[in-house]
Design a protein around this nucleic acid. Structure first.
Length: 155
DNA sequence: GCCAACGTTGGC
DNA sequence: GCCAACGTTGGC
């Protein structure tokens, strides 16, 4: 059982978009970074929990909690010539990119990036490290508990 | 729009 | 295999 933080641009898929999906479930497609892909391929298991993080937007921060409900499988968008995530070097016999499926557990209040940064116990969080750009990062169980507690409190 | 930081590409 | 150039991310 691992914990994660997964970034999404709310212009593409927001926490409310996820809540509106059938079964509140989506394929986490579009990851085009090997390290993030390898996390999904090698470490993510059905039942793992993740913070859903809004990035590249006016109010970046954690917006909810999701659960992995399907292990990594080939990302269909890599084969789609019309998709911005199309990869001409990927073939169906040798797919390059994978995604998991995630299901909404709950929407939380927005825990802003500045609030995360202002919490000394979260200094070690991977997503807060200088220069971090990974769209999927591991979260320790200690970090998870602290953020979960923050989520149930008012800002 | 700026820019720091990092990842990828490709020539050698 | 090195590394400069280029592209991308993502907060501000």
């Amino acid at each position: 059982m691992h914990y994660w933080l997964m970034k999404s641009e709310p212009d593409e898929v927001s926490i409310d978009d996820l809540a509106a999906m059938p079964k509140k479930t989506i394929a986490w497609f579009g990851v085009r970074n090997y390290q993030a892909r390898n996390f999904m391929r090698d470490q993510m298991k059905v039942g793992d929990l993740a913070f859903f993080y809004h990035s590249s937007c006016p109010a970046p921060g954690i917006a909810g909690i999701v659960r992995v409900n399907k292990a990594a499988y080939p990302d269909a968008s890599q084969f789609d010539g019309k998709s911005p995530y199309f990869d001409p070097k990927a073939t169906r016999a040798a797919p390059r990119w994978l995604n998991v499926d995630v299901t909404l557990v709950k929407k939380t209040r927005l825990i802003s990036l500045s609030e995360l940064r202002a919490t000394p116990e979260l200094e070690t969080m991977r997503v807060l490290q200088r220069g971090n750009r990974l769209s999927i990062t591991p979260v320790t169980s200690q970090e998870w508990k602290i953020v979960e507690r923050m989520a149930t409190r008012l800002a």
